[in-house]
């Protein structure tokens, strides 16, 4: 058996070491990853995938720890993917989210993986989607993805998860603005964490006010759940709401969402394939460098140059 087949079989059998190796492949070796994902794809689609986003300091990791415990109590296996930013200057990253979940690390029913964005925009890593598929194929019942948490435009998560939780906490100052600006629309459930603090009710009211501004008719109104992640208060209720949303999706929208997700992924895959093959060809024919020179010399602007090259290419 080849190495990659061994890994594929291992993933499908739920072997933890092989799951870990598979995620590394997804992160680092695009060619191998393609084969890997192609082989496991038929075995995916069973897991319930939850995305968790919100500003730093809101308590995402602590909440996840409590959510996992609650799912475990309910007999479900859980995968967690926690994403942290890569430094654009050094390429290094400090992956610190799992510290809050370390006690779960020895539970056989839980698999936690930290990922660096490797400069992928949108709050998750490029390989996060594949990592989710790997955990899905490995038989995890629930998969939770924690985004970077820088606050803005972390909307990539909708391409990965079915239920999106946007978390906020009182006392974070202007971060509510960030929620308004970027991630408001994607929320299926709002969580106001640290609900034992003075200003918790104000945070709830802020979110309610925002929701009311948006008066479009919607089949699902995002509920606002108060939690205290430190003690686990409110977490069972949150899980209930996630379940409700899941049932709602199944009845109403799951197929539509799946189609949308599939469409987004297909478009992206085509884009990537087309782009890389065209660029490769241009480079091979030395046309790429030539135009680069022209751009630097200000003989032509980048957009026009691209158009010129592509016109020749697509004719």
């Amino acid at each position: 058996m080849s190495k990659i087949d061994e890994i594929i079989n291992g993933v499908l059998a739920g072997n933890r070491r092989k799951i870990a190796k598979a995620i590394t492949i997804a992160e680092s070796s695009p060619e191998e990853a393609k084969n890997l994902i192609a082989s496991i794809y038929p075995h995916t689609g069973k897991a319930q995938i939850i995305g968790l986003t919100g500003p730093g300091g809101a308590g995402k990791s602590t909440l996840i720890e409590k959510m996992v415990r609650e799912y475990r109590r309910r007999g479900k296996t859980v995968g967690v993917i926690a994403v942290d930013p890569t430094s654009p200057f050094t390429g290094g990253a400090f992956l610190g989210d799992r510290i809050r979940m370390q006690e779960l690390s020895t539970d056989e029913g839980v698999f936690i993986r930290s990922m660096a964005t490797r400069n992928n925009p949108g709050g998750i890593a490029k390989a996060t989607k594949d990592a989710v598929k790997i955990l899905d194929a490995a038989g995890k019942d629930v998969i939770i993805v924690e985004t970077v948490g820088a606050g803005q435009s972390e909307v990539e998560i909708i391409k990965v998860a079915q239920t999106i939780i946007v978390i906020h906490a009182p006392g974070l100052g202007d971060e509510i603005q960030a929620i308004k600006a970027g991630i408001m629309e994607i929320a299926d459930i709002f969580v106001v964490n640290k609900a034992d603090r003075e200003n918790a009710d104000k945070a709830v009211m802020d979110i309610q006010a925002m929701l009311q501004l948006d008066n479009k008719e919607k089949p699902w109104t995002p509920p606002i759940i108060k939690t205290v992640a430190l003690t686990g208060e409110g977490v069972p209720k949150l899980i209930e709401k996630i379940e409700e949303h899941w049932q709602f999706l199944k009845k109403e929208l799951l197929h539509k969402r799946s189609l949308e997700k599939a469409e987004a992924e297909l478009i992206e895959a085509i884009k990537e394939k087309v782009t890389s093959s065209i660029i490769e060809k241009l480079k091979r024919e030395k046309r790429f460098e030539k135009v680069l020179q022209q751009i630097v010399e200000r003989e032509i602007d980048p957009a026009s140059a691209a158009e010129k090259l592509l016109n020749q290419e697509l004719e």
Binding site: G96, R100, T231
Partner: peptide, 10 residues
């Protein structure tokens, strides 16, 4: 009271 989980800052 719960147990404290450290906030890691390097």
């Amino acid at each position: 009271y719960g147990e404290y989980k450290e906030l890691i800052i390097i």
